[in-house]
């Protein structure tokens, strides 16, 4: 017997989409396989690695632990939606400059977790940064250059505002 399908409508990276999805599809599957937004990665499928992190209504979540059906009516941002017409997101720039990217498989997830943090907090402490990315496993960098890159993005944003 076929899977039941569900109609969902939501906003992803500022674009409205409407589609029919299998009822048991994960949000990750919907993004990667049905919308070809392959920037979001699957590293474990069970919430243990953070590679699939996306931002839903301003909050970082594991898209592997969310049903696609639960995306209905939501505002979703994926790594593809971070850059704007005017250029890369500051976090993306700092990750590049700060050598926070090695193999890059964890990078989209780390970017989305830190993006959600920076949207929520003006000037997060180092401890808050660590807390925000503790659900993102990176096997390459040892995190140090990731943390400094996030810190630089924060401090440059503050400098920009104070100028």
């Amino acid at each position: 017997m076929d899977k039941e399908s569900v109609r969902i409508e939501f906003t992803v990276n500022n674009k409205e989409v409407a589609l029919d999805i299998p009822a048991d599809a994960t949000a990750l599957h919907v993004l990667r396989e049905m919308l070809s937004l392959t920037g979001t990665k699957e590293g474990c499928g069970i919430g243990e690695c953070g590679a699939c992190t996306i931002v839903v209504d301003g909050k970082a979540v594991n898209s592997c632990l969310m049903l696609g059906a639960q995306l209905d009516g939501r505002m979703v941002t994926t790594v593809e939606g971070l850059a704007t017409e005017s250029g890369l997101h500051p976090l993306q720039e700092k990750f590049m400059e700060g050598h926070a990217v090695q193999c890059g498989f964890c990078t989209p997830g780390l970017l989305m977790s830190s993006h959600a943090l920076l949207e929520e907090k003006e000037n997060p402490t180092r401890a808050e940064i660590e807390k925000a990315i503790a659900g993102n496993i990176c096997r390459c960098t040892g995190y140090q250059q990731v943390i400094t890159s996030i810190e630089t993005a924060v401090s440059e944003r503050l400098d920009g505002e104070n100028r």
Binding site: G47, G50, K59, A60, N62, L65, A132, A134, G135, N136
Partner: peptide, 9 residues
Amino acid sequence: FASAQIRNI
């Protein structure tokens, strides 16, 4: 508890 992503849902 778990991670920020999990705590959020």
